[in-house]
Amino acid sequence: MNDGRQRIPEDSESRLERALRDGAPLMAAGPPQIADAAVSAGLLDVAYATLDSPVGTLMLACTKAGLACVAYLDPERGAEDVLARLAARLSPRILRAPRLLDEPRRELDEYFAGRRRSFDLPLDLGGLTPFTCRVLRAAAAIPYGEVATYAEVARVAGSPRGARAAGNALGSNPVPIVVPCHRVLHADGGLGGYTGGTSRKRALLAIEQGGTPG
């Protein structure tokens, strides 16, 4: 980094340089937001926002087609993992644009408050296999406050013997809560797995029983 500075006295140059680095011009307001302009120009492929909920911070993302992601954020690792996966799955043209997620945020808030029993949101399930889509559709048909078994979901999805495969498909649900894979349990009443961990699964089921989450 010291290239080409030898002709100028070291002392005076470094002081001037430091002053230039430290005194860099700033505007009080900082850089403007570009999300609105990007939307107008048709250049935004994925918008995202976070939502605080009784089951932790959620990351929500949508495309022009609809809601594409609900993800539980790991407080240690933050949003970067989820964003990188969205970039690979959908498009790297991703911006933080909370206003574009106002509707899903509102519906989820109502759900957590016990005031909403089903979601009225277009979904973007692009990139999923047809089987996964059938399984998710079967899970979405389980009414609020009720549960079904993995085998039942597999049967509705057209694979009567595919309980384990259905479990895997539910594990890759990109929009948990909205597609209620937490309502799918083992035949013996065991909780089974959940993308956000079983304590969250239990909390969501408790909300739907009119109990308090957690």
Partner: peptide, 11 residues
């Protein structure tokens, strides 16, 4: 080129 970082990170 795949695996570009999410654009928000550039901002």
């Amino acid at each position: 080129m795949r695996n570009l970082p999410p654009f928000q990170l550039l901002i």
